[in-house]
Design a protein around this nucleic acid. Structure first.
Lengths: 203, 203, 203, 203
DNA sequence: GATGAATGAGTCTTCATTCAT
DNA sequence: GATGAATGAAGACTCATTCAT
């Protein structure tokens, strides 16, 4: 019984690993379910026992990989001490940016196929399975500690993440308008500005 | 001779129109060249006389539509008078956002398929065929007139556009994290902050 | 399991038979994969399960048919007794020529599409799958038994076979420069001369 | 009038040249009429004013090229003196073999597409347009001068030419069973033997 | 005579999904 | 549960030929 379940888990994991390898090397578009099962050494019918179709395994793969990345980023950063909380947030973002710089293929796969549904789930979903609500929680703490005059934290975090994602994709993958090393200070500067608090009327 | 050329232009235009209609209603992925030519009442071979493949006509369509939109935005805005140049830039962006709000299908088609190569061409390419270098030129003027302490205008414009694009797509198409009407003030506020000038060292 | 395998063999064989029939009657050029599967009553996709493309099944067909022919020729001839070994070789060739005279379509298909790669495999490849290395072995025996002053058996056999092939094709298919019945004595006479041994310097 | 005719001739010649270039570099199969006219800078419709289809221009091209080659071979050889007529024939063949060695693409194009109809026309057709009946005439002279006991000159010449063609193609193009330099002495030796006269009964 | 735009039948190839074993 | 052979709809692309100008 347990052995059977282990076997199942093993098969599923093999499919995940193989799909990830093919998605990142050949591209999602050019990877057929056929390719995945052939490479994985698993029967084609078996694939359908675990996943609905190619995009099902892709979505789950993105959730897994991104989950792990954000968790890692938050954890690693909590070990260090910072002058202020904003620096801490920037360090989290920095960790993610650095990681993606070294894993272009992962970045490509994620960004090209990330749907907002998944995104939202990842960031705000309180389901502990995704371990990530911590990013938003972290952000709330930062605002409180720094006494930032931010009215709508969710939207501000959203703006920061959208900007970060766009810049990463453009500068890491396409080197446009400049490589990430050059873009990073500008990105961080922009984030700092966005954190300076809203003043919708006045300005 | 002139009649033939007219006929050619007509055929090409019919293909553009039909492709646009199908791309925006059925989606690019679900539109086959077969569908386009059937709907257009044109022979399949004729399609290949004008376009390399589906993505060729798609790219050209994006360039055309975006070109026109930006041109319109700049022109319409130049008719009004503004207290300051920043307001003028925001009005240009506002025009674009409003336009896309009313043309969700266009937004979807553009955003899902915009490659940076086209993007760059649209914004910076001095080729007058695209009429759009004016956006960047406009931006430079604004910086000068407002005496904004921006060191790297290209990067700042890039950040603003990436942010605007991301927010539009998310809020107009997915209503996430909120509808565009609610997001717009936040977006404009963010843009204002980004224009406040860089202070990379100090901060 | 066995039933499945039997079914597979059956499908493959049906494809071979149908392809052969169409290649020889309509010509290889004018036979589409469509035609083969329609005639065979098999799905198009199934064809690609067994063969890479039209030329893959053609090559395999040529190997099969030629293999069988040579094997038969050698076997049938071994039942008879001959005054000398040269007569035996001529009888093998005679068997092949006669067979091809009665199967013009096969001859046409083979000769028009025979690549030397296949040819070589058929004659010298020791892979018992092709059963035919016996032809070259036979030839070596003949040389030994008859004490023929042939320095380079491989080249001499090659010359004989090239000449035979050319003459067969011309005279059987095109009746040029004369029908095979008339050409055969001349061909055999030529082969006898070629076996008379090389004298490269002297002559 | 004369100028128009000249223009026509020029167009035709351009088509010949372009077709030859493409046939030999890309292969006949992979060359479309489209390719020829585009490369030649001539309208597609014009092609059909001169040729029925691709195979029409191909056949005519083969005749032209081969005609010239044989004519050259005979002429060049007539300038030299030989001990005997057989040496002279071998020299003609040698000239052709050498020429084809240096023009593999021509050899490929000719051999892969030579139909016996053309072949026959080239060798025996008394139409002086092809300049080549001389090869057969030459051969008859040789037989007479050397007093060769050849009963059927046409068939013997046919055998020699078929053998030569086959060997050239195999050894020059495919290097099988050996490069032409190695094969040539064997080929010439074989030809000498074939010229030794028939003795159908006796042997 | 020359042109070249238009045609559309024809061909290849892929691949998600099913289902009997 | 697992398998993998079979399916056939779907789609991309080519190209010889025609014919109005």
């Amino acid at each position: 019984m347990s052995k059977i379940n282990e076997n199942k888990k093993q098969k599923e994991q093999t499919l995940y690993n193989t799909a990830f390898k093919l998605f990142t090397t050949k591209g999602v578009q050019n990877t057929a379910i056929n390719d995945i099962v052939r490479e994985a050494g698993i029967a084609k019918g078996t694939f359908y026992l675990y996943f609905k179709d190619k995009y099902d395994i892709l979505d789950k793969l993105i959730i897994r990989k991104t989950s792990i990345l954000i968790k890692e980023a938050v954890e690693k950063t909590q070990l260090k001490t910072f002058e202020n909380s904003i620096d801490q947030l920037l360090e989290i973002i920095n960790y993610i940016v650095e990681y993606l710089s070294g894993n272009k293929l992962l970045l490509k796969m994620i960004y090209k196929n990330l749907s907002w549904g998944i995104y939202r789930k990842l960031l705000y979903d309180p389901d502990p399975a995704y371990h990530n609500h911590s990013l938003f929680q972290n952000f709330l703490q930062i605002i409180e500690q720094e006494n930032l005059p931010i009215e709508n934290p969710e939207i501000t975090l959203f703006l920061i993440l959208e900007l970060t994602g766009s810049v990463c994709y453009s500068s890491i993958i396409l080197q446009e308008p400049a490589p990430i090393e050059i873009m990073k200070p500008h990105l961080f500067d922009a984030i700092r500005k966005l954190l300076k608090g809203a003043n919708l009327q006045e300005q």
